[in-house]
Design a protein around this nucleic acid. Structure first.
Lengths: 345, 345
DNA sequence: GCGCTTTCCGGAAACGTTTTAGTATGGCAA
DNA sequence: TTGCCATACTAAAACGTTTCCGGAAAGCGC
């Protein structure tokens, strides 16, 4: 005999009363409640999650699905752990626990999520690394699991998502470079299949148009989002007939490869070429000259994610007025030395 | 009516048989099994985890507890996701799922783990960031939860653990520097409270003794494991009357601060001072000159962790001969330019 | 035909909890 | 007194699954 039954017997009380006492139900004598809570503390009793989940149909667990398969693994620890802090600060107020579900490399993310959802180990999900077309969204919609996606997608109608302000960042980067007299601005980005690649480059193009600068496809360098990709981007850039005077990188990690290639060519970032990166990461500080890039509070993003998610959960929605179901998350410029190179007088 | 009952009704078969068919029990007709599996696939049936956990007393989930404290996050980089890959490659063979349990910043890790254990959402645990005295170990031992600690500890008798080969690394670093003629070798480390700080410095001292070099306490610089800590280490080092000609850093992140302080003093790493870091991380490559440090396969470490853990779980131990319950994980030297400075002829 | 084993399946108990329905008690108004 | 309500509790059902136990049917040797 274990669990609540033992506790009930120890107190010589029915298990129903014990349960109600522990769960703060109204119809239990204040004295009794005190005794129950004291005994629970003393015996170290904590309700078995399987039992209560089975009965209630709820787990009090929020899942954060992360993929360790992509190239994103290179820089994701920091990101997810940072966001996690903000998430928990909100979720813990509702006695919700956050579990991270890492999708195995060799398993299809869609299948993995399907398994997790079917097993009912979470009440709601946050999915990351959203693709432009993402079957996971349809799955969650169909299964009626509350969720929010980190990254926009064309799947599943108008689902709830939060995404970084790629448009704003691209515009800011272009504006800044143009204000320094640059006209030929290259961009190193992954392919259009990746959400980021598509949106970012599109915003870059629009920003150029706004400044009346002709769009030159040769300045869009499609590479892997890795160190090698950065090296290759530098390489291809140097092979252009009409060389750019500035370049925007979408992944921080590209910077190291680019710097290396530039170094081989005797080009100094910030002196001979303006370089702007995207999302600030701790290691960006390791570069010399330091990389100009864009910064955001991972913790605040986590808070926003949590509140958005709770707004989609019927049991919690009352506390969170569901305003915009889609949020564009702003980043701020973190100036460095790498874009000091100016063509202005 | 949901779940297995519906499936059984659909097949006009008892639920007991359906369950046995799905779980690969022997006493079910091959034809029946096929029908059941086909129907399950068709209807998208997956067993409710709460139900089966409640009945079996097992969850088929392994927990990896991580701490999202600021210092851990900054130093982890891709550590956890790297290890996760290796873990899953082993666990998935046994149909075990890995969940990461991030301890909230504002909750005591011991309390958090207690909650998670009591709720029985995992069958076994891997805990990281083990402290020299770690109550979590006693808790797990007492609760009889199979576990393995990433990091050694003096708590809980002789528990199972895996730790990095600090001794080997310290010895290798010292040997390498001594062979280049260095006699005054500083070390920047966190306080003795941190496992790493204690063991690493001790090993460093022993290595010096082996070379007949007198131990000088002033060369042990206790700083935070952060960029600022690195800067401070550089600062304190420069204030010494008799300056060291080499320095060993315990955290990669320290390197950036150190480099900055050295730069201010006009000292070039690798030319005027030999620098060796500890664990290689992607961001280490961003440094110029590149940092000499120590490398390991995170994936392999994950595999080792998983196999060690399974050996401690009665249900799986048969496949994993429980050899050494304690493992020292080796690292290999990753030579860079930062320790090129030599005093030899 | 009989006894035995093997194969396969159905019925039901059990896991630990929450929650509903029901009950005893006592107070209070009529 | 009776009737009614509020309070605080007990008993029991329910959640979805696995697994034990028993039994029907079939095969087999004699």
């Amino acid at each position: 005999m274990k669990g609540i039954r033992q506790l009930a017997k120890h107190l010589d009380i029915s298990i129903g009363t014990v349960s109600r006492a522990l769960n703060g139900r109204p119809d239990v004598n204040i004295e009794t409640r005190k005794r129950v809570l004291a005994a629970a503390e003393e015996l170290g009793y904590v309700a078995n999650q399987s039992g209560r989940s089975l009965r209630q149909g709820t787990t009090n667990v929020i899942g954060l699905m992360i993929e360790s398969s992509k190239e994103t693994v290179e820089n994701s620890d920091n990101f997810f752990l940072g966001v996690t802090g903000g998430l928990q600060s909100v979720l813990s107020r509702h006695k919700l626990d956050l579990l991270m579900l890492p999708c195995p490399n060799d398993e299809d993310p869609h299948e993995y999520l399907k398994r997790m959802v079917a097993r009912r180990i979470v009440d709601a999900m946050i999915i990351s690394a959203t693709q432009r077309v993402d079957k996971r969204i349809d799955l969650l919609v169909k299964a009626k699991i509350p969720f929010v996606a980190l990254g926009r997608s064309t799947s599943g109608g108008n689902h709830t998502w939060i995404d970084l302000d790629f448009e704003g960042v691209a515009a800011c980067a272009v504006d800044r470079l143009v204000s320094k007299g640059h006209r030929r601005i290259a961009i190193a980005a992954p392919s259009n299949d990746i959400n980021l690649g598509y949106i970012f480059v599109d915003a870059y193009r629009q920003a150029l148009e706004r400044h009346g600068i002709a769009y030159d496809p040769s300045l869009i360098i499609r590479v892997k989002s890795s160190e090698q990709g950065g090296y290759q981007a530098g390489h291809e850039m140097l092979r252009l007939d009409s060389k750019p005077t500035a370049i925007i990188l979408i992944y921080e990690l590209m910077a190291i490869g680019l710097y290396r290639r530039l170094n081989e060519a005797g080009i100094v970032p910030g002196r001979d070429l303006a370089v702007i990166g995207f999302r600030e990461e701790p290691r960006g500080k390791f570069l010399q000259p330091s990389l100009t890039c864009f910064r955001m509070s991972l913790r605040d993003l986590g808070v926003e994610l949590a509140e958005t998610l709770l707004a989609t959960m019927p049991a919690y929605a009352e506390h969170y007025p569901k305003g915009a179901r889609n949020t564009i998350w702003p980043l701020e410029l973190a100036p460095g030395e790498s874009d000091a190179f100016s063509l202005s007088v």
